[in-house]
């Protein structure tokens, strides 16, 4: 528990950019810990001189923040226009099948959090996926099955205390 608090504090207080805002602080926490714990909301409020409710208003506005611990691995599947045209729907169907879930969400064994994304910013490489924040382009149903298998076999990035 204390470890978590220290990680939050470290993430919030070591932001590289000169302008520190509620949003930048939340992003720093999400990056470091993978989600926004309740303690982080309180600490961001203290740092930025706002209240927990103001911070919550910002945090809950963005669907990319999550408020419970993520699974060991993150898989994001882009279904933006470019990826869509280049066959994202088949890639997504294959990925869902390989993971064994019906749609977005966490697997019941806590191994993988799967999300759709509207653009991962690499349209030239469409269709794109992001496995534990590593972009992988030019996906096909076969490639994505292999990527999921490899991802699940790899060590969790959160296991070693975050980045």
């Amino acid at each position: 528990m204390d470890g978590l608090k220290q990680r939050i504090t470290a993430a919030i207080h070591n932001q590289p950019q000169p302008t520190v805002t509620v949003l930048s602080s939340l992003l720093a926490v999400e990056d470091a810990i993978g989600y926004i714990p309740k303690d982080a909301v309180e600490e961001v409020a203290d740092l930025t001189g706002t209240t927990i409710n103001d911070v919550w208003a910002v945090a809950s506005f963005y669907p990319n923040f999550r408020f419970d611990p993520p699974c060991e691995h993150q898989l994001e599947l882009c279904w933006g226009p470019s990826c869509h045209l280049m066959g994202a729907m088949a890639v997504i169907a294959a990925a869902l099948d390989q993971v064994g879930v019906e749609g977005e969400g966490d697997t019941s064994d806590g191994k993988l959090s799967l999300r759709y994304n509207t653009c991962l910013g690499a349209c030239a490489q469409a269709p794109v996926i992001s496995a534990d924040h590593n972009l992988m382009g030019r996906q096909s149903p076969e490639k994505v099955r292999a990527a999921v298998t490899a991802l699940l076999a790899s060590p969790s990035p959160h296991g070693q205390g975050g980045n």
Binding site: T50, T51, N53, D54, W56, A57, S60, F61, Y62, P63
Partner: peptide, 10 residues
């Protein structure tokens, strides 16, 4: 001056 309420979600 309390901010006990906020907007949630979007």
């Amino acid at each position: 001056g309390n901010s006990a309420l906020c907007f949630t979600d979007r």
